[in-house]
Amino acid sequence: MAYKISDECISCGACAAECPVSAISEGDGKYEINPDTCIECGACAETCPVGAPAQA
């Protein structure tokens, strides 16, 4: 199941920079993960300073 970014997101962009398939983009107030592109590698979760990305 693809990762999803919670409301804990502080819009720092760290997750987007680490995503190997560019599935993360800046949304309305927080970053969002495209579930069709996400390969569930966990790179976003590992780099996020607030733990916002998690498997949905």
Rank of each mutant, 00 (worst) to 15 (best):
A54H: 14
S25I: 09
P35W: 06
A17Q: 13
C38V: 04
E32R: 08
N34F: 10
E32S: 07
C38S: 06
A2C: 10
G42W: 02
V21Q: 06
A43Q: 11
T47R: 14
D28F: 11
M1C: 10
A43M: 11
C48E: 06
M1L: 09
D28V: 13
K30R: 15
I10M: 15
E18K: 15
A45E: 14
E8K: 15
E40Q: 13
D28T: 11
C48I: 04
C12A: 07
V21S: 02
C41V: 05
S6N: 02
I39C: 07
P20C: 12
K30E: 05
A45Y: 02
G42S: 10
C44K: 02
G42N: 10
C9Q: 01
C38I: 03
E8N: 13
E46I: 06
K30W: 10
G42E: 01
E18N: 11
A16C: 01
K4E: 14
D36M: 12
A56C: 00
C38D: 12
E32F: 02
C38T: 06
C41G: 12
C44Q: 00
V21Y: 02
A14E: 08
D36A: 15
T47M: 12
G13N: 11
D7R: 05
C38W: 00
E18R: 15
C9G: 04
T47S: 13
C12T: 07
P49V: 14
A23V: 01
C38H: 04
P20Q: 09
C12Y: 12
P49Y: 13
K30G: 02
E46M: 12
P53A: 04
